[in-house]
Amino acid sequence: MTKRSPLDVQPELVTDLLVSFLREEVGTAGMSRAIVGLSGGIDSAVSLALCARAFGPDEVLAVLLPYRTSNPDSEAHARVVAEALGTPTRKVDISRMADGLIEQEGLTDPTRRGNVMARCRMVVLYDLSVEWRGLVVGTSNKTEILLGYSTQWGDAAHAVNPLGDLYKHQVYQLARHLELPAEVIDKPPSADLFEGQTDEDELGFTYAQADELLYRMVDERVGPDALARAGFDQALIERVAGRIVANQFKRLPPVIAKLSRRTVSHDFRYMRDWQR
């Protein structure tokens, strides 16, 4: 990929900023270790690599969380990444845990099954975070956050997230800069929740299309009419804009009904880093 894109970032600068971010925001939570669910995909690999730089590889636990139908390549690639970075790994097979619900309730809907798996992984990560004494570091990028392509309280649950302001394109840039193994950079992105799944098939458009459009819509605040005039496909504009709006609930804390004069999340206004 040699063609310049307006989305290109300075990977070295971004790495320095994110390493500083991780050290300080994990530090303000009173910790100096991290735990990352490593899927074998590019996002969690980049997150893990940043944590390894921030805390040292020994202080970061990479957790492999396969389900019985997961593609074996996922675990293999995750191991290649952890080995390259020198981080310890822990494997927790979530099959029995997930099937406890999936089989008992006879879940066949792939969305429900996928959500159960994602939430089981969250439970394991948060449980291990106590043993490891580390903070759960997220792996959601800006593209998937804006599209709402994640499971609430599942993969979207974490304490701090170094990737949340990077589009998928920029995650790739960072992955190359951090010299991550080709296995995770070259394969098509997949949530691996069912066989043969790829993100782009499921979304119905490519990350390249989504990134370019989201960048114009969100970063540059270009309206739909101007985007159509600039040559973006009308149907794509509507789908992407629709997803942004429809998934706002995933980006915010739960809604609290205001009754008193001062209400949490309305007018009880303090930062998370309050006195930390």
Binding site: R4, P6, L7, D8, V9, Q10, L13, V14, L17
Partner: peptide, 9 residues
Amino acid sequence: GVEQTGEGL
């Protein structure tokens, strides 16, 4: 502001 069109922040 981390875009590649400039140098530094």
